[in-house]
């Protein structure tokens, strides 16, 4: 998609910017969904304290790890190849 001669044209450059923008938007959205999902799964929502307790903290660590695995697993199913990286 990018030019081969290392001097991208105006349209190519717009596409490079556009791709980089979409990639970053994707990562931000992934992070936001992960954050909200793990908060829902792990954090007591009566808010009796403002600190995270030990149980919540370890739940969060495992939740992030599992979410990551699910991201990779679904990425594989969507055909991004054998390795576990997101499909870009």
């Amino acid at each position: 998609m990018a030019a081969n001669n290392n001097m991208p044209s105006a349209l190519d450059k717009e596409q490079i910017f556009g791709m980089a923008e979409k990639e970053m938007e994707y990562r931000v959205e992934l992070f936001n969904k992960l954050t909200h999902t793990c908060f829902n799964k792990c954090v007591e929502n009566k808010y009796k304290e403002s600190e995270l307790n030990m149980g919540e903290n370890s739940c969060i660590d495992r939740c992030v790890s599992k979410y990551w695995h699910v991201t990779n697993l679904v990425g594989q199913l969507l055909g991004s190849g054998p390795s576990g990286r997101p499909p870009m």
């Binding site: 979409k22 994707y26 992934l30 969904k33 699910v70 991201t71 679904v74 990425g75 997101p86 870009m88």
Partner: peptide
């Protein structure tokens, strides 16, 4: 990419 994110969120929520 949005569909991908939404699919991960849904399946994670329903399965884990």
């Amino acid at each position: 990419l949005r569909m991908y994110n939404a699919l991960v969120e849904r399946c994670f929520n329903d399965c884990v």
